[in-house]
Design a protein around this nucleic acid. Structure first.
Length: 544
RNA sequence: GCCCGAGUAGCUCAGGGGAUAGAGCAACCGCCUCCUAAGCGGUUGGCCGCAGGUUCGAGUCCUGCCUCGGGCACCA
């Protein structure tokens, strides 16, 4: 069953082309801003007025006459087209949403193989709450893409060859020998702990030559950090499909191959003893500065690895599309990677980068702390996984996130997580009550009984779920999920409230047929809400 | 200096060129002899940062400026 949006769009599109409008015109189909304008609105008649040299109202009336939709009725008002979903169609939506445990899923992705690369920070320290935002956002993008028919692999790229990780290993080594870490090294207590663990688990490490010990230690320490990291993100329901090690790239000769390809294409030059990449390429003029690929001392930069990483994904492993989720502080790196992609003969369109803005912690009324000094684990300890995920997803990626600890900790109105979860728990409770009081309900509901405004309001929100998912997945905008959950929960609480005001309007009433019909609506709403929460990685409790 | 993002109600933020700009929270006023009040209804609250421009129509697109955050490595 197609979404309401898709159905109306198809019909409207047909009607517009019947008017012989030359150019392709945006249908301007939107959810209505006000109830009196119906459920969807289109201003396409206003758009067509000029090319058709006719009055908008006349065009709107003409279009209305050509529209006969199963989803909605149409009304032309002062140049606008207002669509109202038909009760019959809404009933069908309810029937389906109640039955389909994957309601809203689709195959629009056509099985496209997508890699979502999430996080990939240097594994040299604990994750802070800014990293956490990237992880959760990326994970949710992965969920959305999988739900819309893409074949998704969530990957963490483990840097283990670069300068920082070497410095990290040197810091562990220094602790192992009872010395201070080198200048600019890592001084946290976890470094000393790692050294202790290495002493216990790598027998003879203290006696090895410095070079050998360094290599062994680096492997050991990074492996340990990756395990810790996995444990931290698992607590917020983030699970990677793949941990891809930078060293693996070099073993497979991929950076070398990429460098060769760029050299052959004339995009590398030698200067001051180093090898530079010149990203001059039409369309990516922003990346106009040369960058070092091989240092003067012969060692590659991270950029060399990244070139190989592009080949690894698009060629070696055959991903058709890569979505990278980076902290916004890496934005300057985007044009360079896009240019490199193009110069390697790949399509930069298939490399999408989602930049995630920073997180600030708001404690109490006054103090604000920069996210980089608070660990993700600490935050999860304080407020729990559900609140962390919900609050992180609430804001669009390019808005800075002000994490309100007070609100996340509260058990009251100011905590939006509970609002949606409470709606779910309430619906579950209604179903439980109905089972108790009406053990012999009819198998099939008569959904035509659902005609109250608050009932139809719930059905309309349920009907919006498939298009919400589709848009969120297409635009890579997970923040639409909590906003949707909020709206659906709104409608659910309104539905419930009607029963508080008048017992006849309760979901469970003496009349078994009415109870059965409303129960179907409960199931449909609860299913939609559960799926929405599930896409966010937030739990849907059965009681609160 | 250059690049990216943000600037919308007291606070935190949604707004895909279209009708009178929205939500949550906060503030104020109401609603439980209960299918869960972690809920519901109502009221108050806006030069959409500023100035131009494009358009029949701009919070939305363009230009300039202001403020805040971030970035501009042979770090990642």
């Amino acid at each position: 069953m197609r979404s309401a949006r898709a159905g109306i769009e198809a019909g409207l599109s047909g009607a517009v082309s019947a008017l012989n409008a030359d150019e392709k015109v945006d249908l301007e189909l939107r959810p209505s801003r006000e109830a009196r304008f119906g459920d969807y609105q289109s201003s396409v008649a206003l758009k067509l007025a000029r090319p058709l040299r006719r009055a908008p109202a006349q065009i709107a009336a003409d279009l209305m006459g050509r529209l006969d939709l199963e989803e909605a009725t149409v009304e032309a008002v002062s140049g606008y087209l207002n669509f109202r979903l038909r009760p019959r169609w809404l009933q069908e939506v309810v029937r389906q949403a109640a039955a389909d445990s994957n309601y809203g899923s689709s195959d629009v992705g056509c099985g496209q193989r997508v890699q979502v690369e999430i996080g990939s920070v240097n594994p040299t320290g604990p994750l802070h709450i800014g990293h956490g935002r990237s992880m959760i956002l990326g994970d949710t993008i992965g969920r959305l893409l999988a739900f819309t028919g893409h074949q998704v692999s969530r990957e963490y790229y483990v840097n283990d060859q670069n300068k920082q990780t070497r410095l990290f290993a040197a810091s562990v080594s220094a602790r192992l020998h009872g010395q201070e870490p080198p200048p600019g090294g890592y001084t946290g207590g976890y470094v000393t702990e790692l050294a202790e663990q290495a002493r216990a688990e790598l027998p003879g490490i203290g006696a090895m030559s410095e070079a050998e010990a360094e290599a062994r230690l680096r492997d050991f320490a990074i492996q340990r950090m990756v395990e810790l990291l996995d444990r931290s993100v698992s607590r917020v329901n983030v699970h990677y499909d793949e941990w891809y090690w930078e060293s693996e790239l070099w073993r497979r000769g991929l950076p070398q191959a990429a460098i060769e390809r760029l050299r052959a294409g004339g995009h590398l030059s030698e200067r001051e003893g180093a090898i530079w990449f010149s990203p001059a390429v039409p369309g990516w003029e922003e990346a106009d500065e040369d960058r070092v690929v091989i240092r003067t001392n012969g060692e590659p930069t991270y950029f060399a690895s990244d070139l190989g990483y592009l080949l690894s994904r698009f060629e070696d492993r055959g991903f058709q599309r890569v979505v990278e989720v980076w902290g916004a502080d890496h934005h300057g790196y985007v044009p360079r990677m896009k240019a490199a992609t193009a110069l390697l003969g790949l399509d930069p369109q298939n490399l999408q980068v989602v930049l995630v803005q920073m997180v600030n912690l708001k404690e109490g009324k006054m103090s604000k702390r920069q996210g980089r000094f608070v660990t993700l684990d600490e935050l999860v300890d304080r407020v729990g996984s559900d609140a962390v995920r919900y609050f992180y997803l609430l804001r669009s990626a390019d808005a800075m996130l002000e994490f309100d600890l007070e609100a996340a900790l509260s058990q009251g109105n100011e905590n939006p997580v509970y609002y949606a979860q409470y709606a779910h728990a309430r619906l579950f409770n209604v179903e439980r009550t109905a089972q108790r009081t009406h053990p012999d309900l009819p198998a099939e509901p008569d959904l035509a009984l659902l005609d109250k405004p608050w009932e139809l309001a719930v059905a309309k929100e349920i009907a919006r779920w498939p298009e919400t998912v589709e848009t969120a997945a297409r635009e890579l905008e997970p923040h639409r999920l909590p906003h949707y959950a909020q709206r659906l929960a709104d409608a659910v609480h309104g539905f419930y409230q009607a029963g508080n005001e008048l017992p006849d309007n309760r979901m469970v009433v003496p009349d078994p047929d009415m109870t059965r019909a409303r129960l179907e609506l409960c199931r449909a709403a609860r299913n939609s809400l559960r799926i929405a929460l599930d896409q966010m990685g937030v739990s849907a409790p059965e009681q609160m």
